[in-house]
Amino acid sequence: MLKLMRSPLKYVQGQGALSEVYEETKDLGTSFLFICSNSGYKNCHEKIEKSFEEKGAKVKFEIFGGVSSIGEIERMQKIVRENQIDCVAAVGGGSAIDTAKATAHYEKLPVVIIPTVVATDAPCTGLSVIYNNDGSFSHYIFYPKNPDAVIVDSDIIAHAPVKFLVAGMGDALGTYFEARACEKAKAPSLENGGITKSAMALCRLCYETLLEDGYKALKACENQIVTPALEAIIEANTYLSGVGADNGGLAVSHSVYNGFTALEECEATMHGCVVAFGTLAQLVLEDAPAAEFNQVLEFCVSVGLPVTLKEIGVTDKERVRIAAKNACAEGESIHNMIGDVTPEQLYDALIAADVLGQEYLDKRK
């Protein structure tokens, strides 16, 4: 298997980045469609429009339906063709991002990502999650390239609800441990290639950044201020995690998330929160050193990530068996683990992680 490395062509981050959207994208065309979430349009469109003033480029803003569905993507494709759009951009969270990526891909256009939250590493990845028009899961799209540009305005992230930053740290937490498992098993990355030393270095830096700056960034976001720690975590949640996962691969953490999505009681639990708990379960399966497990546990508690099943919405152990079975379905990334993992083994690991997490919380009382 050949080793490979992919990433966005350009990554821009900092305070006031929205004012530079034109300068950072002017080589991509003269007609832009910005696919926006409701909050993305409200918080960003004036600054983006101002950056394009008197530049001779045409901009169109469209608020999408809220889900990256087949029908919504087709609607955006029609807008692209009717308005002779040169470049598609996303302004919002994961669903807006996935919609813009798919629209650009099908229309063979460049795509720019402007995240308004950093709850997942979707901005930098070369894939989308696509849903049917009724909201049910349809399929993944794996693209031949990553986004042409990712532009993150730190002021926008600082003023977004704190829960999104925390969830993003949970998503990022799995990056190093899942990539490490894939490297050991010689499993392929999400890009279906071998894992480079560069990818592992990014994944490791992602974890180290979370430990160093996670709590400080949380406090900055709670007070809607931008500090070096918040800038570091924005980068970890977005770039280090996104490029790391793309090129490092997935294992138990994300399969656990996929498994728990089958439970109604977890519908309101954010992606990154379940991934964080899945990381604890992966460490149990690996029989990781106590010092490493405790370090991850302490980090989760310090920033408000769940360490028990109850915190992700589950109180019935029999429901955990259902999630464990789904997490081990054919094609799931959990099978990248050395020796593979059965539903029974995963169930035991989830219960063990829950017990250890509850014990830690009880000691803190």
Rank of each mutant, 00 (worst) to 15 (best):
V284T: 07
T279G: 02
A236Q: 05
N247E: 02
E231C: 01
L285K: 03
L283E: 05
P289K: 15
L285S: 12
A232T: 05
Y239C: 07
G248C: 09
C266I: 06
V274M: 09
I233Q: 12
P289C: 05
A245N: 10
L263Y: 03
A290K: 15
G248N: 02
C273K: 04
Y239P: 08
T238L: 06
E267S: 15
I225Y: 04
I233A: 08
V243T: 10
Y239V: 13
V274E: 00
L283I: 09
L263P: 06
G242E: 13
L250T: 11
F260Q: 10
Q282R: 08
A229G: 13
A245T: 14
I233V: 13
C273A: 14
N237M: 14
L285P: 00
L283Q: 09
D246K: 05
P289R: 04
A232Y: 07
D246N: 11
L240H: 12
L280D: 02
G244V: 07
G248A: 14
I234D: 04
I233K: 02
S255M: 08
A232M: 08
A251I: 08
V226S: 00
G249F: 13
V252K: 06
G249P: 10
A251M: 07
H254G: 03
H254T: 07
A281W: 03
T261A: 09
L263T: 15
V256A: 05
C266D: 04
G242I: 07
E267M: 08
L263W: 14
L283S: 09
G244N: 07
H254W: 08
N247C: 14
I234S: 05
T238A: 12
N258I: 12
Y257H: 12
A288H: 02
G249R: 03
Y257G: 12
C273S: 06
S241M: 00
F277L: 04
A232W: 10
V275P: 02
Y257L: 15
Y257P: 05
E265P: 05
Y257D: 09
E286Y: 10
A268L: 12
H271M: 14
A268P: 09
N237Y: 04
G278I: 13
T261W: 11
C266R: 01
I225V: 13
T279C: 01
M270H: 04
T261L: 14
A236F: 10
Y239H: 04
T269P: 03
E265S: 11
A281F: 07
A251L: 13
A236P: 02
L280P: 00
L285Y: 00
A262T: 12
